[in-house]
Design a protein around this nucleic acid. Structure first.
Lengths: 190, 190
DNA sequence: TGTACATCAGTGAACGCGCGTTCACTGATGTAC
DNA sequence: TGTACATCAGTGAACGCGCGTTCACTGATGTAC
């Protein structure tokens, strides 16, 4: 063989990783396949040896993004609990760098317009993240904690999406501050 | 003149209205100008007598959407206060009909990728809505109420965006229920 | 009153462009005999 | 050991398509003289 045994696998992973970042930054429609491949030093023709079509890549990029989001979340939770996670999530750094941030605020509007199958895959993986977060909230009522995590994630992802949409204005910073502050109060009340 | 005096004005308004609905349903990239104009019984060439370019239409469609969202919000607030507003916002009907719903969850991801100028226009109009909502929350501390409204809007828009992204799953309904429930508790605590 | 002209919202053919996708090909390597 | 062939990740020209945008034109009407 011309390449090492796991060469194709590694290329595949690199495409998914790069796509995941670029989709978050520019949206699904804002990333072209030729452009994406050339950024990895590859030609666009090879793309179809790795993926069925662009939709397939979107699915895999979203899954990868949810994996990443989960790992980053666990890191913050381990270091300082939900307070640290919320702090990090509502930071200016997160707002200004969608490519390294959570997939939810970056792509949720667009994900809602995809096929039933794609949305089901998204829901399945997202639901796992919710369960794992729920275990880390105080109390033993997992079902209740699931609702709490869903509420927190709605507020967090909404705040980042709105703060990005309002650009470099005072309002943008205000939205993040407000959401952080009231989520802290919510946590304190648990 | 061939047409009535306000004919052009009315046509302009009709285009903005239709675009506003279709952008919410299909996203900015999902709506073509020729397609949009033909839906109004017009040909695509005439578009540029009304708008500088597609970006101009997006700006106007967003502004129109924020006007509409405000009116619908006030209606709910007048009928049953914030509880009624939250109830309506987190309904299945809202999730399933982006075209008649709030612009925030439908377009916020995409708005974040537009020009600085467009985002500033969005922020200005959105900020007005926030002020007007803040006046209707209990208490006299308007600055505090602004933060509360921003928190509520983050959670509401986030919950709809996530519920749409998770499609027709149990999770989708759960997210709406959870957000509604915890926002009710938040209101009760004010 | 009648005619020539100006106005202007809307028409539709045409443009260049970038996109997703296809496919015959390349060329380095492993393998069969 | 040497040669012919199979493998297969990646190449790049070519495709059809839909898009945003331009522009010379239409045709019904108001207006000037």
């Amino acid at each position: 063989m011309r390449y090492s045994e796991d060469h194709k696998e590694k290329t595949h992973a690199k495409i998914v990783e790069q796509a995941s970042k670029e989709f978050r930054e520019h949206g699904f429609e804002g990333v072209g396949i030729a452009q994406l491949m050339s950024k990895l030093g590859l030609s666009h023709g090879g793309f179809y040896a790795h993926f069925e079509d662009k939709e397939d890549l979107k699915d895999q990029a979203i899954q990868h993004g949810l994996d990443e989001s989960y790992e980053m979340a666990i890191e913050a939770l381990n270091s300082g609990g939900f307070r640290a996670y919320i702090e990090k999530y509502t930071s200016d750094l997160h707002r200004d760098h969608p490519e390294y941030g959570c997939v939810l605020p970056a792509l949720c509007s667009e994900e809602g317009r995809r096929t039933v199958e794609s949305k089901a895959k998204f829901a399945e993986r997202f639901s796992e993240n919710i369960d794992l977060f729920a275990e880390r909230l105080p109390g033993n009522d997992l079902a209740l904690n699931r609702t709490r995590v869903q509420f927190i994630m709605s507020a967090l992802s909404g705040s980042i999406a709105l703060s990005r949409a309002t650009g470099d204005t005072e309002l943008s910073a205000e939205i993040l501050r407000s959401t952080r502050q009231h989520l802290f109060a919510f946590l304190d009340g648990l």
